[in-house]
Design a protein around this nucleic acid. Structure first.
Lengths: 199, 199
DNA sequence: TTACTCATGTAAGTAGTTACATGATTCC
DNA sequence: GGAATCATGTAACTACTTACATGAGTAA
């Protein structure tokens, strides 16, 4: 359950409404933990029920309302203890790799299409990660600034460095996938060649 | 839904009982798509209901029975069309990376413990992948032999090559994670040093 | 007035997990 | 006789997805 802790971490930067939180989420944590807005609203209610956050109902126009959430001391304690805890990593479940294992069932061209899609996907991801890593390193994101503003100057370097390091890891990961797809395409060239001309 | 297709792919090598299938699964597909045995039995019943496999009830001792599943032509067609289909890759959801982003909440030593655990996990995975890749390359696994025996000699190289390529990808992935963890440990050394001695 | 963004949800369904249950056969 | 392994499931639960619903404020 990373979602609840990701939400607690976002709120550590300061109080936010569900909608604000969802927006911030999409521009930060969502790179490492995706969630739908509907799930965020449900989880916030649950966190409130457990006393890890408190909500304040605010007016929005004359008729409607919104709810601003604030982290409680219990919420902060829960966040810290979660980050401290060493978790079992979940078992692998990667459908692209199971397909790659059974590419003999389709034509070489169809197999190529799989690797090209894989490459394109990770190239796009890599670009987004690089952009975000640069913004973090330059301390340009709104959320990071808010967080830095609320913590002692001596801690700033570590806060930034850990985040940048995580994104550098994601970039390395994406590059590994791109290389794998390229080697897959080369493999298919060799296989389709080998069957046709030489020997 | 890769589980159903992974099961179809296993049955393409020949008929198997649920239990046999579960055992084969653990030694092959589980490296890329983990599933519990309970889930496999449920999924087999569903596949049977959809006509993608047929089951034959066999005696086991005097009183008990077991069910042997065979792939139907519809099942094979479904398998092929799934491998052909280019899927959207699911959004990232990696709790180790969200923790890495928030390591400023814990001590340097606790942060080190996270990276060490991460490294140990992927070292173990890498070793298992390497072993399996070697076995596949030498055509030593029972399942691969069964599959090769049932397909024309000209196709053998491709069948083996695709599987080996998938495992080489997993190995590369594991190595990337190990390097990331090592760089994380170096980062913590720099951060804890920087605060203590120089400047 | 139309479209967009702000804002908050519910409801139904799927995939997967964890724990439990039961009994047969085989090997020591 | 006991332990391991063969063999097949059910039940309750959790996380997440997809689709839907509703309405307010704001800028063109």
């Amino acid at each position: 359950m990373s979602l609840r802790h990701a939400l607690l971490a976002l709120l550590e930067a300061g109080p936010m409404t569900g909608y604000e939180l969802a927006k911030q989420f999409d521009q930060s944590v969502a790179y490492v933990w995706h969630a739908q807005h509907s799930q965020i609203y449900t989880e916030l209610r649950r966190l409130e029920g457990e006393g890890l956050v408190v909500a304040e109902t605010l007016a929005r126009g004359d008729r409607a309302t919104k709810r601003a959430y604030t982290l409680t001391p219990e919420g902060l304690a829960e966040l810290r203890s979660w980050v401290r805890e060493v978790e079992e990593l979940p078992a692998v479940r990667d459908s692209a790799y199971v397909k790659a294992t059974y590419l003999e069932y389709v034509s070489f061209d169809e197999a190529r299409a799989q690797f090209r899609a894989h490459r394109a996907h990770y190239e796009a991801l890599r670009d987004r990660y690089e952009l975000h890593a640069d913004q973090l390193a330059r301390r340009e994101t709104a959320l990071l600034r808010r967080r830095l503003a609320g913590s002692p100057g001596a801690a700033h370097d570590a806060i930034v460095a850990f985040k940048v390091h995580a994104y550098r890891g994601l970039i390395a990961r994406a590059r590994t996938e791109i290389e794998w797809a390229n080697r897959g395409l080369e493999l298919i060239d060799r296989l389709s060649d080998g069957g046709a001309s030489p020997k």
